[in-house]
Design a binder for these strands. Structure first.
Lengths: 116, 116
DNA sequence: AACAATCGTTTCGGAGCCGTATCATTTCAG
DNA sequence: CTGAAATGATACGGCTCCGAAACGATTGTT
């Protein structure tokens, strides 16, 4: 069964999801941060700073700063690449996995409430 | 046919949508701004600063500043309530309607690309 | 070994957004 | 008519993020 979303449903889903995020969290992640987080959790490793910057079409400091922030939140962690010590590998954390899971649950819940 | 979104599909949709937003726009809207915009475009008028603040559980200056920003972008506009001149009515614009339409189209497009 | 290239980080000035408190304007109540 | 209440905007100090440039560390090249 394909996902057949109508424009009005798409907007309502977008609204309800963001609405819930805004109401719940004091500190919500930016679009860039969410994209970085989900890229790390959905795509196959390894993930480097340079690779993420290129993929998202942003500068490297943007990734560095996002890792600082989300590292502080324990949603992601850095690790040196032992094979090439210039690289930093971005890895998942338990707390990050739970956060991503919560995003998914919220999205699923809001999609179920959509009118036909 | 109900919208039956699995968690993995929800995450991919969330990722792909944000990814596209980040790649395309230099200046992307925050979660709060998107919520305000969609609230005005989806829910029935009138929309006041106070009403939006209460609905989103944020302070009034948050709404005022968001209206400044999105007003500059011409996505929303202010108008004095002639019945009660203390009120400011938040209204849609042509440019804002096109932006919202683009959001919907992007969401629909990404949802169609989801794996079964 | 010496130099260039790569990688991630840091620095810098500038801009946006935050919450709290305060303000001007308008309306309502006595 | 006068004071209280309501509404939205503004001032303030603080925090985060931005892009560009410069930096240290590491690796590859010759």
């Amino acid at each position: 069964m394909a996902i057949d979303l109508r424009p009005s449903q798409a907007l309502k889903l977008l609204h309800d999801f963001n609405y819930e995020m805004v109401r719940d969290d004091d500190r919500d992640l930016s679009a860039r941060q969410i994209t970085i987080l989900l890229t790390v959790y959905l795509e196959t490793p390894p993930h480097t700073v340079r690779g993420l910057a290129a993929k998202l079409n942003v500068t490297k400091p943007v990734i560095t700063r996002a890792l600082d922030t989300m590292g502080r939140m324990e949603l992601l962690q850095r690790r040196r690449d032992l094979a090439d010590r210039r690289n930093v590998l971005v890895q998942r954390t338990v707390k990050g996995a739970l956060y991503v899971e919560r995003l998914a649950d919220l999205m699923v819940a809001k999609s179920r409430e959509l009118p036909l």
